[in-house]
Design a protein around this nucleic acid. Structure first.
Lengths: 245, 245
DNA sequence: TGGCCCTTAATGGTTTTACAAATGATCGTA
DNA sequence: TACGATCATTTGTAAAACCATTAAGGGCCA
């Protein structure tokens, strides 16, 4: 199943401190450690997790660098309020994904997507190079070739969106591919409860591509807006069905 | 002078590993260590910097968690390509700010702002609570009270924008305050070459506030769009003047 | 000669111990 | 009671030793 692969982006889960950071990060996002509380002292914590103090401290540094922890001598290490977390950090998003569908978070995520991507499509229509257009077309063709809903199909779908972000010529937008990935993962995690969604997403993708290729920025934006709107509706339906059960 | 205060957000510069992370992060963003190259081995590097291996490794973990480094035994620690950096991380933005005005980066930053903030204003117009409206108004009043261009004025200006992001009711947008801060810092860093800019920004702010208060979302968005457009023009002028010298 | 496997050595990964520095809490004294 | 010195706890830093991984080179075999 897609979505279950190791997508901790910034650190390897093979390394011990990486595993520890993942575990504690997950606990914090899940709410096991509420903002404001002090974590167990390093000494107790690393005996509890059965790792050395070094490994624990390296994990703490990772989480601190994402705005989730703050340490001070004598007082201890506290969990910072959610407002100061780097919510757009790939790992933080990943943990937020893994703790399950929180309605508010999914709304924020989808909303963010629907702000970013249409503008990216617009800019891509203005700036995309021929090579970038070819790349986008290639991803689209591969999407067509793959069975709807299969991992390959989803992979090329993501690639399609990512390439558009890149073609926007804005390096801040270009690095936001994982936001889309995270949103799509959420939808996949929900979508296994029902069938038949995303059947008609191919022509929508095509219209986005054609608008970009034609350098028609307003239409590219509109087409992407529509595509994402449909995708979000699918997610909402799945969410509602899940909530009814 | 504002902008020179310690605004490394996620780690303290007092701690040694924090200083080291700051120094190496700056070097990487500045291009002293090009993407793809392997850094000196930990042993050599920590003798060069005159810190223990522990401190160096904790710094490495911070930078790795921002997508800037990747370590592997025997090969060494390499600088990852710029595309994989978490460009929206507060520290990465701070370093990008500090290395000086790179035209492309400033354009991306301003563009990103002009995507995010108008939408935030629109959402704020739809969702802002009375308390949030009061906060925004208070910041605006304090702006009026302060002399244009002074640190206090800029501080309340930032606060104004930050509160609107918050009032958008989207926690992903709400955490992007430092993006604006970074953009404004850039403009301040450039603006010392000339006078008289931002004189008329107060009425623009007021019109944004009034639209939000009136729950007029389209006007709120338009007003914010206009406000940022003006701000960006100011920055461009400063940049051009700087480039002429 | 070419390709495969094994050995080797360099480098990061992990643990442990010891000590330093910061600071919240406590106790004592004016 | 208020202030200040002292104490104790916790994180910060250093150093040394050993483990695990893996790129690279050499040797063996087909």
């Amino acid at each position: 199943m897609l979505g279950t692969h190791n997508n901790s982006r910034t650190f390897s889960r093979r390394s011990l401190h990486g595993q520890v950071a993942h575990e504690i990060g997950l606990r914090i996002v899940r709410g096991d450690y509420q903002p404001g509380i002090v974590l167990p002292s390093e000494e107790r914590f690393c005996t509890e997790l059965e790792v050395s103090r070094t490994a624990l401290r390296e994990a703490f540094k990772v989480l601190s660098s994402k705005g989730m922890l703050e340490a001070r001598p004598k007082r201890g290490t506290i969990v910072k309020p959610r407002e100061s977390w780097n919510m757009l950090d790939p790992d933080v998003m990943n943990w937020s994904s893994l703790v399950g569908p929180k309605r508010d978070y999914i709304r924020s995520l989808n909303e963010f997507r629907s702000i970013i991507e249409p503008m990216a499509a617009q800019l891509a229509a203005e700036r995309a190079t021929d090579e970038q257009l070819e790349g986008i077309e290639a991803a689209l063709e591969k999407m067509k070739g793959a069975q709807t809903g299969t991992p390959e199909s989803i992979q090329y779908d993501l690639q399609f969106h990512q390439l558009i972000l890149h073609a926007s010529g804005n390096e801040l937008l270009a690095t936001l591919g994982y936001v889309i990935e995270s949103a799509v993962e959420q939808s996949i995690r929900l979508a296994h409860t029902r069938r038949g969604v995303r059947e008609d997403s191919l022509p929508l993708h095509e219209s986005v591509y054609l608008a970009i290729k034609a350098h028609n920025s307003s239409e590219a934006r509109a087409a992407m807006e529509y595509l994402i709107k449909k995708a979000i509706v699918d997610i909402q339906i799945s969410l509602d069905q899940l909530r009814k059960t």
